[in-house]
């Protein structure tokens, strides 16, 4: 066991982990941040995407020990300070960008990473960027629409929900 310390959603977090403890296990277990989901556990589906030092990573394919000293942001850190939904989250609600909701935390974290680097992506760029996030309900259309809307672009020309 080794001690790890990191900043998670702006607050200090630490705990004892095994070498093999995945970052997603540390977040969901000791820290109780169960918003980050484990879908496939093989780094295919993207339900576990979080930000480590500002970059989107799959938390099922990184060890907790490797995040020692890092700044980690999860879906729980995406709401506004007053607890209301953040811009991307609100857009997902407004445009029905989810069905069962299981993939949504990863979708929102990937969307946030995309919009940080590319504030006004084209629809094709959004679809390309989401290649590592799988929605088993196949609700991609409204997910893409929500991300376009969150970027402040007019989505009225994108086909009906």
């Amino acid at each position: 066991m080794a001690k790890v310390s990191m900043t998670v959603n702006g607050a200090a977090a630490s705990g004892e982990v095994e070498g093999r403890t995945l970052l997603v296990e540390f977040l969901r277990g000791p820290l109780g941040l169960t918003g980050t989901h484990v879908g496939c556990d093989t780094s295919q589906c993207g339900a576990c995407v979080v930000h480590v030092n500002g970059e989107a990573v799959k938390a099922c394919t990184m060890f907790a020990a490797e995040a020692d000293g890092a700044e980690v942001r999860t879906i729980e850190g995406m709401a506004n300070a007053d607890g209301s939904l953040g811009v991307i989250q609100q857009a997902f609600q407004d445009h029905h960008g989810l069905q069962c909701g299981f993939c949504t935390p990863g979708m929102v974290m990937s969307a946030a990473a995309l919009l940080k680097d590319n504030p006004k992506p084209t629809e094709a760029e959004v679809r390309k960027y989401l290649e590592g996030n799988i929605c088993r309900c196949t609700g991609y259309h409204n997910i893409v629409k929500a991300i376009m809307a969150a970027s402040g672009q007019d989505v009225s020309a994108i086909a009906a929900e």
Partner: peptide, 9 residues
Amino acid sequence: IGDPAVRNR
């Protein structure tokens, strides 16, 4: 290679 999150690691 892979997808954006994979390319970050």
